[in-house]
Amino acid sequence: MRIVLLSRRGCSACAAARADLARIRDEVGEGFDEVDVDERAGAGDPELRVEYGDRLPVVLLDGVEHSYWAVDDRRLRADLAP
């Protein structure tokens, strides 16, 4: 399974979500990637910012929106369980 955190620079909720995912990563061994939607848009790919930019941070699990505005720890742990 692959976790992606969609975020933007200067977003305090994004920083909290990053810390939550780092804690979960350390506990369950599941890493995550982070994508700055504004940087991606500036590089010519605005789709993520258009789709998710008004509700950041967003956690994607296997390419599907899992949670937004905050990490749903309990649900994410359950979805990552074998």
Results as ranks from 00 to 15, higher is better:
55 R>N: 04
65 E>R: 14
73 D>G: 09
40 R>G: 07
13 A>G: 03
5 L>E: 04
64 V>C: 07
55 R>T: 09
71 V>N: 00
37 V>R: 00
72 D>H: 02
17 A>R: 02
81 A>H: 04
57 P>W: 01
38 D>M: 09
80 L>K: 06
58 V>N: 05
48 L>P: 13
34 E>L: 14
41 A>P: 04
8 R>F: 01
33 D>Y: 06
76 L>R: 00
23 R>L: 10
36 D>F: 14
16 A>R: 07
19 A>M: 11
18 R>T: 04
75 R>Y: 08
12 S>R: 12
27 E>Q: 10
27 E>N: 05
20 D>M: 01
58 V>C: 05
27 E>M: 01
81 A>L: 07
68 Y>N: 13
30 E>S: 10
70 A>I: 02
78 A>T: 12
32 F>D: 03
23 R>T: 11
2 R>Y: 02
74 R>F: 08
63 G>I: 07
23 R>Y: 02
66 H>C: 03
5 L>G: 03
55 R>L: 08
24 I>T: 03
38 D>C: 06
54 D>K: 11
26 D>A: 15
17 A>V: 04
49 R>L: 13
26 D>E: 14
14 C>S: 03
48 L>V: 12
64 V>E: 15
44 G>R: 06
63 G>V: 09
1 M>G: 15
21 L>G: 05
47 E>H: 06
23 R>F: 05
30 E>M: 14
57 P>A: 04
32 F>E: 05
22 A>W: 00
58 V>E: 00
26 D>I: 10
57 P>N: 02
64 V>G: 05
69 W>V: 04
66 H>P: 03
10 G>Y: 01
54 D>C: 08
5 L>T: 07
35 V>T: 14
4 V>F: 02
7 S>P: 04
54 D>W: 09
45 D>L: 14
32 F>Y: 13
51 E>L: 13
82 P>I: 02
55 R>Q: 08
78 A>R: 14
70 A>W: 03
47 E>M: 09
17 A>M: 07
40 R>L: 15
51 E>M: 13
69 W>T: 06
63 G>D: 07
21 L>K: 05
1 M>H: 12
61 L>Q: 05
2 R>H: 10
59 V>R: 00
63 G>Y: 03
56 L>M: 10
13 A>K: 10
36 D>N: 15
5 L>M: 09
14 C>W: 00
48 L>R: 11
47 E>W: 06
33 D>G: 15
6 L>D: 00
